[in-house]
Amino acid sequence: MVIKYSELVIKHFKNPHNVGTIENPDASATEGSPACGDQLTVYLKVNPETQLIEDIKFQSYGCASNIATASIITDLALGKTLEQAKGITWKQAADELGGLPPIKMHCSVLAVDALRSAIKNWEHKHLGKEIDDSLNKKNIVKELQKVIYGKIGVDIVSLKLLKYIGVGEKNNVLLEIAVKKDDPFLDDVKHEINERLEKFPDIASVKISLV
């Protein structure tokens, strides 16, 4: 199969919109890390009265689709209310770019994740909303919905590759996933799961079994 970028991805990569930082932003968030791959930081300026996103900027350490998806989600979010911006999905961002190759869909997830985290950061700072990072099955599923199976370009929860979640008394997490041991994307899926679950401060360990 030919893996190539759409013209819109190329356009946004060549000339991305909203690149840079905001001096004294009202909120910001960074997702991903150089130790694991791509990293994206989103900065927000939000009108406290109307909760409209008045300015949004991003910085990306990533590939062409990482930069293009960051460009498009910042375009989509600019001028929207926080509630509206929260509704932007990674599928929508990919569609707006004329589609992404399945192996690149995780870039769109990272972009949307950074936007949503920046909004959460604003709500925490300005509305006092607590960030719920407690270790429970519901929150684990939420995080695993961001783990994309690169062969198909869909998350492992929607694909029903996630078969079981167990959280032990000592916060040891056991996951069962239906990925074959010789699957070329197994290492990536494991890597992504571990990266996602690292976000839970209380987590003691993660064990991934193949079923």
Binding site: P34, A35, C63, I103, H106, G150, P184, D187
Partner: peptide
């Protein structure tokens, strides 16, 4: 780069010779 590989993994030779993912 992992981004350019067919399975999103960084080059194993660079990793096996002590380079970081970055």
């Amino acid at each position: 780069s992992a981004c350019s590989s067919r399975n999103l993994q960084p080059n194993y030779i660079l990793m096996n010779t002590g380079r970081t993912h970055e």
